[in-house]
Design a protein around this nucleic acid. Structure first.
Lengths: 210, 210
DNA sequence: GTCTATAAACCGATAGAC
DNA sequence: GTCTATCGGTTTATAGAC
């Protein structure tokens, strides 16, 4: 791995990067993958630079700090998450179809961007205790509001069983769905659509025969 | 390891200290709390020593390494987890009461030992990639076997809906239940018994009105 | 945009006095 | 059982050459 460091620069040029941010995006993708798989603090800037085929000091031409990389990854993720959830909640014609859409969309997002989801899921400790990442907590609260509105409307309309507390229900679904990122395999036998089907079958009808 | 009833007739000790010294157990409790709240790698040996009111070097009189502290915490936790789950699965008179008992026991364990559970939950990345902690993965597989046997027996007996895949069902319940450690408050309004009631109501009957 | 070289701080761990 | 003192290694980040 520590051999020809100059050859890699040519390989990167081959992809025709017109803008300077193409390289930046590529480095962020590498960082996201390593942050997700081995944890943020366990990943060193040297690790990222090695994987990119450059030296650690060169990373600071693109980013001012390691924290900035994490910030950028999470900002993009939280932004697209909010946009997608808002559009689903607004476009649904009933609480039940809204919840169905939110759950399916979640599994799709896990399929599309597993690294960002894993980061968001695994580094909750770190993110919650660092003021720089307050925007994550804020976006999370906004997501919660969207889901809670759907669950409350469904309890009101009679779609959902009214004896179930919306907040607890939300947490149960949220934790169960997002946790799948830890074992879901994007190239495995069970694809995200089928996984969503199974989770919705359990959620809708429960476990017990009747 | 936990309860050697061997006759240490020392009259000075009021509370049951296990095989190790009381000081050792106290230091482990401090370490567990900090490992859980800010993460294993983010917690330095100096942090632990500070909290205990000693200097970092003094910790090495009790433990040979930082890893050893984590190992000991997790070994005790995984051992008691396995014993409890085994006894519940063996003592139940039907798959449905077995699953009920397993879920209720899980919430009780989260209530009793939240730090160890959080550690087990949050450091999965680190634990899975370090050979020293292979015993955790091994115990997890044994836990999975216990739950899967219950779920398969229930699908067979007709207690549970046969169209639900036991493995996916197990993961859904496991992730949903253990994740509550991240927001459950042992001194909050919602106690573990009521929380178990709500989760079981959702699990048993599902979300939809009928 | 990357490399060379290195600063400054921090971390886990050790040796020996008391 | 704790403290003093410190070692060797690692980490993030910087300055300047090319």
């Amino acid at each position: 791995m520590a051999t020809t460091t100059k050859g890699d620069a040519g390989a990167a040029r081959k992809r025709g990067n017109a803008t300077g941010s193409a390289r930046r995006a590529q480095l962020l993708a590498i960082a996201a993958e390593m942050f997700a798989s081995r944890g943020y603090t366990q990943t060193t800037v040297r690790d990222i630079a090695d994987e990119a085929g450059i030296l650690s000091g060169s990373l600071y031409h693109h980013f001012s700090s390691k924290d900035e990389m994490l910030t950028e990854i999470l900002q993009e993720f939280m932004g697209s998450l909010l946009r997608e959830f808002r559009s689903i909640a607004e476009g649904a014609d009933s609480p039940r179809t809204a919840l169905d859409g939110l759950v399916r969309s979640s599994f799709e997002i896990i399929h599309r961007t597993p690294h960002a989801v894993a980061l968001y899921q695994n580094e909750a400790n770190f993110l919650g205790s660092t003021p720089e990442f307050a925007f994550v907590t804020k976006a999370s609260r906004e997501v919660e509001r969207i889901w809670l509105d759907v669950l409350r409307a469904g309890a009101e309309s009679g779609d959902f069983r009214p004896e179930l507390d919306p907040t607890t229900t939300y947490r149960f679904i949220r934790d169960g769905v997002w946790s799948t990122v830890r074992w879901y395999n994007p190239r495995g036998r069970l694809q995200h659509g089928s996984l969503a089907d199974q989770y919705l079958a359990m959620l809708d009808g429960g476990l017990l025969s009747r």
